[in-house]
Nucleic acid binder design. Structure first.
Lengths: 188, 188
DNA sequence: TGTACATCAGTGAACGCGCGTTCACTGATGTAC
DNA sequence: TGTACATCAGTGAACGCGCGTTCACTGATGTAC
């Protein structure tokens, strides 16, 4: 049954949105096309009316996840200033909730090691997201302008590394220690 | 054809050794049992004479990779002291070679995001490796004893994060910037 | 030490399964007049 | 505005493929006497 243009656009929107969450939660290989379509309320066959293949969905989903994160930062920066927005971002990043729920969290921390073997479109989306966040962190750092970028890169590496390590270890105490150590370094 | 005890032990050794390399290079899901067995010079059927299933091989391979890394540090520490060993480790970690060749590099950076969804045995092997490296880094850091552990955790997070990010981005210039920023922060 | 037999490491075909993808089909939507 | 037809979003069965795993088989090794 053919759908209206609006309904078609909404379907695509649901597919991308669910994919952005499922890929972060289960990994790219861990979430199948059928999984995503079911989450979007459809069967798998219709997928190819929206995307040429799974790789195209992956790229769109990573783009979406990146846009969401950057959008949140920029929105808060517009009302409360960039410094407050970055502070909030770092606090969120190093929170228990973020470690526990990759679904709505940083796509880079969730997908980074799969991205290494992903097609160019996906790698480009990750690179773009990384560059955008680093740029905003840099501007918010209280140091000499020429030191902002390296400091922002090192900060981002520590954020990503902390969350990746906290998620990979089974030891709750070690997880807490990691988060606290990173907070001390990043905030205090 | 039955093999001698010695030949059997050598076969198992080759399987674990090749698995430790292939899993780091291609990921756990990216290297099949048949791939590992071929690399070890055998066909896939014989695998189950050595391991009950692939999960057991993954755990053994991660253990092996971790032991190799820790062994290198400890060996250098025995002759040149822990400080020199950790310095060399950090330099190696933040080198272009390490980013380019996960095959012989840090198993945590290579497998961390897959480890999150891996069985308990694999997670335990990763946790054990992380704890071992952090302990050694802590002892080598020139700060108050009570600050050594958090500083070591934050340092390890930055090392892992830098390499994970450098590997996931397609942008060579950004990769170089990441490594240089991390070196400046870690080494001084 | 030598012999007869049991063991088992490794082979290669076969299995079931889930995956990405294709396809014939349906029927509501969009378009042409 | 109404009608006739073409389009195409979504369904569900089917496909080929690679995976982890199983299994009958082979023949050298290990063991019992």
């Amino acid at each position: 049954m053919r759908r209206s243009r609006e309904a078609t656009a909404q379907s695509r929107e649901r597919i991308v949105s669910e994919a952005a969450q499922l890929f972060r939660e289960r990994g790219i290989e861990g979430a199948s096309v059928a999984d995503v379509m079911n989450a979007a309320g459809m069967t798998h066959g219709g997928f190819y009316r929206h995307f040429p293949d799974k790789d195209a969905l992956v790229a769109a989903a990573v783009d979406r996840a990146v846009d969401d994160v950057i959008g949140q930062i920029d929105q808060q920066a517009a009302t409360e200033g960039l410094g407050a927005a970055i502070s909030a971002y770092v606090s969120m990043y190093l929170s228990d909730d973020h470690v526990k729920s990759p679904r709505y969290g940083c796509p880079i921390a969730a997908l980074a090691s799969e991205a290494r073997r992903a097609p160019e479109t996906t790698r480009a989306a990750v690179t773009n997201g990384l560059a955008s966040v680093v740029e905003r962190i840099g501007k918010a750092l209280p140091c000499e302008p020429e030191d902002q970028r390296p400091a922002a890169l090192a900060m981002m590496a520590m954020l990503v590394g902390t969350v990746v390590l906290a998620r990979s270890t089974a030891d709750k105490a070690l997880r807490d220690e990691l988060l606290q150590a990173a907070r001390a370094q990043a905030i205090g």
